[in-house]
Amino acid sequence: MATAAAAAPSPSPSPPLPPPPPPCCSPPSQCVKLLRAPPPPANFTRSSPPQHRSRRHRSRAICCAGSSPQFGAGDLKFALHDALDSLGVDTTHAREARKKYCSQIGNFSDIERETSISINRGVDLGKTALYIAAEDDSLVSHSSVPLPVEAFIQRLDDLSMGYCSHYNSRFKSSPQTFLDSLDKYLYVRKGFRRSSAKGLLDFRSLYLHSVLTHRSGSAAMLSLIYSESLKMLRLWGLLNFDVEIFFPRDLEGLPRGYDKQKSKESDQPHILTSQALLVQILRDLKGAFWPFQHNRNESLFLRAAQAANCSDRSNAGEESGFQLASTKAAQYRLDRGVWTTVRLGDMRRALAGA
C-alpha cells in the first residue's frame, strides 16, 4: 500500500499548506489534503460500552492530485492494479480496499502522524490495517467476495467488551493493577502470542484478520491490538490515566502498557507512532514477499540487483549452489510472468507493500 503524503500547495491565492513530512517508504501514488477530525456529537456519553457506539467518529479527507484542487476516489491511479488489469486479472476488490486505505490515512494531520498509537485519533488504525489485508487477500485469492472488514472490526470491539465483562472490578484499581489485568486478558485468557522469527514466514502473523483468528502475530500486530483495546476503553470512559505502550525491539518481547507518568527516558525508543506503525506493517509485508529471499542481511534492492546478474558479487567466494539456483529460479519465474511461489515470495504483495 502506498503511503499518502500531504497535498502540494494550490495555485489559488489561499495560504500554502505546510511541506509534507519526509517520505517513510516508497513514493506515494496519490496525495491527500488533511482535515481535522470533528469533535464527538453533543449527545455522546462516556458510559457503559454498547456496541453501537463503537468506532462511530471519523475524520473526512479531501483528495487532490497534482495541481487539481479536488478529485474523486475514482481518479486515484494505481500502477500495480493497472498492470494486473492489463494481464486480465480482476482487481476490483483490491482497488476498493486501496481507496478505503487512502481515505483512512487521509485523516492524518502532521501532528497525528507523530502521535503515539496509544492515543485515540481520527485515523482508525484497525480499519487501516484491515484494508491492507483486504487488498492483499484480493490480489492472491481472486475471490468474488471481498474480505469482511467490518466483521473483523467487530472482533476487535468484542475483545474490549470481553475485558469489560471479566475485569470490571479492575476499573477503579491502581493503573498498574489495571494494566496487569489487561496483559493477562490478552496474553493469557485470549492466548495472543508473539510469532517467532521463523514464524514470520507464516504470513498469517502479518495480517490483522489472521492474527485475530489464529492469535499469533508480529510485534506490530500485537501492538495494534493492544492500542485498539485501550482506545475503546478510553472512549467508554473506563481509562482515567495516561497510558503508553512499550513496543519490544527484540524478537520475543510482548507489547505492554505502562503508566505514562512513570515513564523514563529509556522508554522513548520503544514508543511507536501511528505513522511508524503503518510503515512497520508495510515493511514487514514487503520484506516477507520479496521474491529474492536469500541473504536477508542485504537490502531488497541489492537482492534484486544480484538476482539480475544471477550472482552475489559481494560474496562470490562463499556463494552456495542453493542461493545461486534460487536466484536463477526467481529470475526465470518473473521473466515468464509467474508472480508467486510457495517458498520464494510473491511479487504482487511485495509491490502492494511498497
Rank of each mutant, 00 (worst) to 15 (best):
S103P: 04
A151S: 15
H294I: 07
D259T: 03
A73G: 08
C31L: 12
H166V: 15
A37V: 13
I111Q: 05
A2G: 15
E150P: 04
S68K: 13
S138P: 06
F108H: 04
Q268R: 15
R98T: 14
N43S: 13
Y332D: 12
T340F: 02
E298N: 08
P39K: 05
P148C: 06
T177P: 02
V89Q: 08
A94C: 04
F301K: 11
Y131L: 10
D90C: 12
S181C: 11
T340A: 10
R113A: 03
A350S: 12
Y226Q: 00
L239Q: 02
R249L: 15
R60Q: 14
D180G: 11
K172W: 03
D90Y: 01
S141G: 05
S68I: 13
A330W: 01
L201R: 14
S299Y: 07
G287V: 08
S216E: 10
S311K: 10
A307L: 00
S314D: 08
D180T: 15
S311E: 09
L212T: 04
N168D: 13
G337E: 07
F171Q: 02
L186F: 05
S218P: 00
R36L: 11
I225T: 00
I153M: 15
R296S: 13
R303A: 02
P15F: 02
L17T: 15
Q268Y: 09
S263E: 11
L344Y: 11
C310S: 11
L125P: 03
Y101R: 06
A316H: 04
L186G: 05
S47V: 05
A65D: 10
P28N: 01
S138D: 03
I271Y: 01
V32G: 09
Q51N: 08
V279F: 04
H214R: 12
V89Y: 03
F178E: 06
V123P: 05
H93V: 02
G353I: 05
G122H: 03
L206Q: 05
S12E: 07
R313K: 10
T177G: 08
R58D: 08
Y185R: 13
T327V: 05
G337Y: 04
R256S: 08
S320L: 06
M161N: 14
S196M: 01
I281V: 02
G162M: 01
A325D: 11
